[in-house]
Design a protein around this nucleic acid. Structure first.
Lengths: 228, 228
DNA sequence: GTCTATACATAGATAGAC
DNA sequence: GTCTATCTATGTATAGAC
């Protein structure tokens, strides 16, 4: 699958996920109009990841966020109680968004070898569709209070586990090596992250997203595949 | 070489590098006493990377930096003209520090295969000796004005090139594959970075620095080495 | 060169009209 | 629910004595 096919095919379930978030937290939140809530939380999150990508979350002022999202200062504080709460909401929505998209794509395949390829390619392609979310997820965890870092940490581990599970399946089928599964899973995650963390470098080197995905797949396969 | 041997053996040439920095910029700077300058710029930089690691550069206040470094607010501004200038100085010192240490170690080896192993291991071990500097280098580039990002970007490219050169040498000798050299160089860099960017994860998984270095080496070798 | 005291700007957050 | 005006804290940076 090429990236163009992928991007035409993929549908971001962000509204659905934001609605779910709202319903789960309705009692804690001031806004009671669901449609308005969904619309404006999405706007707040999209604006936050956009501005944070450019200048970092701490450097982004509430006034800038207000302007970008189209909500006034007063309205904004009707939706969130503090700037820090925005980080939490973005992490919450982002985690479910990414999880949802990844699982949908990968579950279609059965064969471990093919599944590994699909998982790597999908993850990289997905980070190309919503780069700001992935970037935010990685860079803005330190802005959270220590107790709130558990969510993004678990999220990181979750993606790693996605790869580890595929590697385990393949090793049980006798086609992948059985040692160093945890290391390999983590290294795939690191290579995927490199794509969205150092995008400027890939632009500079004129590397396309497809080319990079192919490279990561071949690098990992040369290591894990057992000779027939 | 084990990490313990490495850490006993390595000597940080930070004073020497700071002195060189001071001499090159003497005319631009207020302080005229060289010994004092070297001592306090080192203190400022070490305190900056330490605090930035904990809470991020933007969240670190000048008052905190003043306390940590032992300089008063007034004294501090005698050394730097603004908070942003500190980022620039840390990047400047850090780049030469890392370059110096890496080159010293790697130049001792001749053979490309051995050189690749030494380069990867040294880089990972080094990031374990001065983790805060590496972390700062990666995370705090966005705090720079766009025109000042050129220095850290070139620095990133420089390390990548270190690996690319070794891969090129090996491919000319017919022991490494000749395609995808640029990709491989960048991926080594990414895997090294993963060590100091997601340290908490390796602690969680109980992975030692030696074990990780060995893994990265074997992963890369399985891909680049041509069968004999 | 270093200190303390302070100026000045900007940020996050709130009040209260609509 | 949303707006504008405003409060208050904090942060960077400077002044001027020593």
């Amino acid at each position: 699958m090429t990236f163009e096919e992928f991007s035409k095919d993929v549908v971001l379930p962000i509204e659905e996920i934001c609605r779910q978030f709202y319903r789960e937290n309705r009692d804690r939140l001031k806004i009671k109009n669901e449609e308005l809530a969904v619309k404006n939380y999405i706007s707040l999150c999209m604006s936050t990841v956009k501005l944070s990508r450019i200048k970092g979350f701490r450097a982004m002022s509430i006034r800038e966020l207000s302007q970008e999202s189209g909500l006034s200062l007063g309205a904004l504080y009707y939706y969130v109680s503090s700037k820090d709460e925005i980080v939490w909401i973005v992490h919450e929505l982002g985690h479910y968004l990414i999880m949802n998209l990844l699982l949908n794509r990968i579950s279609e395949t059965e064969d471990a070898e093919e599944k590994l390829r699909v998982a790597i390619r999908t993850h990289i392609f997905l980070s190309e569709i919503i780069p700001d979310w992935f970037y935010f997820y990685f860079m803005e965890t330190k802005n959270l209070e220590i107790e709130n870092r558990i969510v993004p940490m678990e999220s990181e581990v979750w993606t790693e586990k996605l790869f580890v599970d595929i590697l385990t399946q393949g090793s049980e089928q006798g086609i992948f090596r059985t040692d160093t599964i945890a290391h390999t899973g983590a290294s795939i995650k690191a290579l995927v992250q490199d794509w969205y963390l150092k995008r400027w470098r890939f632009v500079q080197r004129n590397v396309s997203v497809e080319e990079y995905a192919d490279f990561v797949i071949s690098l990992i396969e040369s290591y894990v595949m057992l000779k027939k």
